[in-house]
Nucleic acid binder design. Structure first.
Lengths: 197, 197
DNA sequence: GCGGCTATTGGACGCGTGCGCAATATCGTC
DNA sequence: GACGATATTGCGCACGCGTCCAATAGCCGC
């Protein structure tokens, strides 16, 4: 198999395993078994397991980011773009992609490559949201003195709420997450209550 | 050694190791070595490693909770109590206690006892904050139609921002966390901008 | 001093871990 | 059809893991 294709196949297999087991417990042998090949092959293409996991996380997380960005850029208005943001970002119960984020944040302390990838993608999410807010302010739809800070607040609120849903299951519901985070965003951007529902 | 004391010693040793290595990578043998005893002893007192880790996390997290609760109950006003809340909750760089929370949230999917403990303590934090907000509304200091939801929003925002500091280090600073979360809380509770600084 | 109870030891058991390397299979090129 | 390059194998190495258990040590009431 061509080197580029093989690399992609390894990453794809890693994603498949991580989807089932989580990032933290995915091993070299799991990935090899998933592809039906040997474990040595993985080390022929990647210097360490850290790099493999980082590449797999990168694929999943950047796919979600691009999907949201694409849908948001096609929105008719900044308010509509924000609505799409909340709809696509909020995870369901047992959301495997968000569980990957939880694993990545925790593993960041132990795996340098995972930390770098996680940090970079978090920054990209924040930048996407910041641009959307700035567009809205420019168009007169939002009132916000600090788009950068507001983006961090909205994103972090969403992360914090989503974390409760995914890690603890029953504490709060997906409905609460959407209602509560949109309510905070409306206050943050000077919108009428319910403008984002 | 008396059974009760031994149990406490095991938990204390687990905390000491987890402080260094994180929850996720703390092993039976680490704990035994920390106490200078054998690994078999740990299983004489705990049914599984899951239980040991949950007990250790419980000690650390509930200590922080009790400290905050004590300081807040001694506050002169609801505003002052809230100020103390933000001051004590916001983690520093490389905050080992908050790294334990990150580990617990991620490990929750794999370790039932850890999940139960993490969920319970998260709920207690939310309840503490909700009571504080209700007190403030009763005293006429806050304006808030939904203290329960507001408590979840403030807590989750803080978790989400703190997560960036601890997991990624350089994306945002502790100063930003305090400034941004107090700004959101002021909006949330009908306070003047800067009332919580 | 003795018997019994239990805290504690130390290691076995069966896995699983990342990593590295010699041997082999499978190509495209001449 | 032979050659050389390289993708791929299969296994070894040196650990580390949670769990369990027979054997021992040390203390208590008698």
């Amino acid at each position: 198999m061509a080197p580029d294709r093989r690399r992609e196949a390894i990453v794809a297999a890693t994603v498949a395993v991580a989807r089932r087991k989580g990032l933290a417990t995915t091993t070299v042998r799991d990935v090899a078994a998933e592809m039906g090949t040997s474990s040595g092959l993985i080390h022929h293409y990647f210097a360490s397991m850290d790099d493999v996991l980082a590449a797999a996380f990168e694929v999943v997380a950047s796919q979600d980011l691009e999907l949201s960005a694409r849908l948001m850029s096609a929105a008719a208005s900044p308010v509509e773009a924000l609505r799409i943001f909340f709809e696509t970002y909020t995870p369901a119960d047992k959301d495997w992609a968000f569980q990957l984020w939880l694993d990545a944040w925790a593993e960041a302390a132990r795996r340098p490559a995972v930390q770098a990838t996680s940090r970079r993608l978090n920054l990209e999410w924040q930048a996407l949201l910041e641009r959307t807010i700035e567009d809205g302010v420019g168009a007169g739809a939002f009132l916000c003195p600090d788009p950068g800070g507001a983006a961090w607040r909205i994103l972090s609120l969403l992360d914090g709420l989503a974390l409760q849903v995914v890690a603890h299951g029953t504490t709060i519901s997906r409905t609460d997450v959407v209602a509560w985070s949109t309510a905070a965003a409306e206050r943050e951007l000077g919108l009428m209550a319910g403008a984002l529902r």
